[in-house]
Design a protein around this nucleic acid. Structure first.
Lengths: 325, 325
DNA sequence: ATGAAAGCGCTAACAA
DNA sequence: TTGTTAGCGCTTTCAT
């Protein structure tokens, strides 16, 4: 691997000049050409590690998500990656497994590896960003907020919950359950709010026994749905709090021969790998990729030194109603 | 951030001794204790960038996969990550998008960032590993081989294809189609071989018009399934070459009211987010997580200097038959 | 077992 | 504009 010194010697200039050429500082066109020529000849590429050590920062950003197997987050990851790699940054994808200790470990690594910044879908509202922020690394929150005053990109969760529920009301359902995510996660709580709103707006009672908090996972959806069906008065419809809960609920319904529209189903989030006809399940599509793109752009701005007050971008879901029944 | 010098001063030793303590070299228990004490007091953590520069390698491995949105690969990624992080390595997940140019770009970055090694699910059989191998970075191939003589972990694709097909034959199907992945991808070709094997073993003709090569994606499965159904003599069963092709095929069948067992379906790979009852679709589960675990272990061995001839590990799929009809 | 010192490849003051 | 030089924080000879 050729170094900056090899190039300098071959081009007949100082190492500093070579560095300047590769960093866009002002260099006479003549020397710049010589440097480029020499660099090409030696197949020189700057050593990123050395640069990081000297600059005290590297062109790497961390993306910390709670579940790498959830298509919602991988879709977001693609958005982040597209923007980042366009700008010459690498993305390190970190799977916190929704565990605060693993998350913390990754955030530590982000500091140690001198990463330029972090995009974080926090595992809980007690995530500790002190060290990171003290080290001057910008952090952008995605999907869920944190307890810090930082940039964030979130979904219009309440609206999504309302729209999903509304659709079932319009279809004539009267006992509408809601399988929600963990109570302490902001997104879950907001979607519950939307479900409540829609019911109240129609003068319908808010049936607490039909509200189930669960994990944002398939098995959580399965359990909750099974419980709901075991009720003396089971629901005639259900709003799933995210894509995986929707899958779990639909699996249980299918197994019992209650495939929609036998029981109405609305899902907040997309069902990318479902085999159901899109006609029978209402989906509020959440623009995960856009969320990733937006977050990455904001982070790059912060890395670039933008210094305005913390911003919040809220993305709207898109209602894809089941065909009216 | 405290440096090794700060610790040395506080502990009353030389920087070299501090380094030795953190690298397991022999140091008197007395001084070692003093160093640990001082390090704890200063919250010292070694700067990884400096170490990488000095050592000319970093504790990072790259995992390059063709489709980050495919659950098969994210499941594998988890396996890799679990092993790697256990050993103190970070994993950089790179999505090549099945494009050889993006893949090449990531492999370049792996060299530049002095990553310790690469786990690669190659986008094609023409992937160029010259630079990487010349730079002495070990590479382990997963899922698919490469044209190089390196360690690899693959699935028993032919067996999987055979088992999936066999199951449909046992169920009494007589016109069994196969929707395969891209012809030039090893895994796809091998699975086709298995399909062929099973048919021939039963003295059944191998119906070329029922073999479709496609992309390993949902839309590919949809197109192929639609074409098959449009045939004058459509198939009464289909073997899907991977999980996404299976989803696509099932979507089309469902939309046309041909949900299995109306048409028999076997899928090579799992359907994690399907809402179908597992009773009606045969699945040959592929142990993706194990593949990741195995590959990561092999890579770490190579990084550690193991120098034996290239090894190949073949993992068996697990037949999960639909309930006999 | 320990310390002194060189240097990994680059960038950024400072001088010229 | 250009070159000289001093590190960034660590590891690793080479002495002792």
């Amino acid at each position: 691997m050729a170094t900056i010194y090899d190039v300098a010697k071959l081009a007949g200039v100082s190492p500093a000049t070579v560095s300047r050429v590769f960093n866009g500082a002002s260099v006479s066109e003549e020397k710049a050409a010589a440097v480029r020529q020499a660099a090409a000849e030696l197949k020189f590429v700057p050593n990123r590690t050395a640069r990081s050590l000297r600059r005290q920062s590297s062109e790497v950003i961390a993306l910390v998500i709670p579940d790498i197997e959830n298509p919602y987050f991988t879709e977001m990851a693609r958005g982040v990656e597209d923007v980042a790699s366009e700008a010459g940054y690498s993305v390190v994808l970190c799977n916190s497994d929704a565990r605060i200790d693993k998350e913390q470990a990754y955030l530590r690594i982000a500091i140690l590896e001198q990463m330029s910044g972090v995009i974080l879908a926090a595992s809980s509202d007690r995530t500790d960003l002190e060290d990171l922020l003290r080290a001057g690394r910008p952090v952008v929150a995605v999907d869920r907020g944190t307890s810090y005053d930082i940039d964030r990109v979130v979904m219009a969760n309440r609206d999504a919950g309302r729209a999903a529920t509304q659709q079932l009301i319009d279809a004539g359902c009267t006992r509408i359950a809601h399988i929600a995510g963990p109570e302490h996660i902001e997104t879950a709580a907001e979607r519950v709010g939307g479900w409540r709103d829609a019911l109240e707006a129609h003068g319908m009672p808010v049936p607490t026994e039909l509200l189930r908090f669960s994990s944002f996972r398939v098995d959580g959806g399965r359990e909750a749905m099974a419980e709901l069906l075991a009720l003396p008065e089971p629901p005639d419809a259900v709003v799933a709090g995210n894509n995986l809960l929707g899958v779990g609920a639909l699996q249980v319904l299918t197994e019992r021969g209650l495939t929609p529209p036998a029981v109405g189903v609305s899902v907040i989030g997309s069902l990318p790998f479902t085999t159901l006809s899109p006609d029978v399940v209402t989906v509020v599509r959440l623009p995960a990729r856009d969320m990733g793109i937006t977050a990455a752009r904001m982070l790059l701005e912060r890395i670039g030194g933008v210094d305005e007050p913390a911003r919040t971008v809220t993305l709207q879901g898109e209602l894809q109603p089941a065909i009216a029944r």
